[in-house]
Amino acid sequence: MSMSTNRIARAVAAKDLRIELRSRVVANQVLPFSGLVMVMFAFALDNDDVLQRVAGGLVWLATLFSLFILVQRTFAVETYDGALDSLRVAGVNPQGIFIGKAAALFVQLLVLETMLFIAAVVLYRVNVNGSGLVLLVTCVLCASAGLAFVGTLYGGLTAGARGRETLLPLLLLPVVAPVLICATRATESAFRSGGLTVGEGWPWVAVLAVFAAVFGLGGLLSFSSLIEE
């Protein structure tokens, strides 16, 4: 990564996180929304055994629902007053924008997932031991990286499109299905749900790492053409 790309990525990430701290969209909208989803699932299933069995899937489903809000928000701040055009006219390396926006999204997802896993422990009474925690943390890091890369990529693709609010979930949901499946399996292993062992979760984490690498590389190569007219 060149000095210029590095500088732009850091500036964009810092700007996005500062905007989030000021606007508190994650704190005031995304976290309550995802927390509500977790509570609704608890009421709907209303069975501790079932909840402990499906806790991993519910956490990741709530994460995916929240991802749409986060991605739309992160590109809304760029398009609202034409900042994305200004970035393009400034001759800014698009790879720097991609890395910076993905990094900010990654941090926001980590905060969200931490809160969701705490909610799962409290609401669904799941348990995780030391080795399970290592698996869980690695899973969260890999899944968040993948979601951040693919979210930034598709956010850039739909940023200037009409009907982007509905277009984004339609395009993004099928693409992030592998993350939902792999992260759920790995989380179930970390929670030892249904007799699974922690060791069984690592192959799923490896798939998540490959997913993140593929979309990270794909984003770096294609983001430039995606944000053009």
Binding site: K15, I19, S23, V77, D81, G82, A83
Partner: peptide, 9 residues
């Protein structure tokens, strides 16, 4: 027509 600014900053 647009200023290219970030309102929260």
């Amino acid at each position: 027509h647009q200023n290219g600014l970030f309102g929260e900053l």
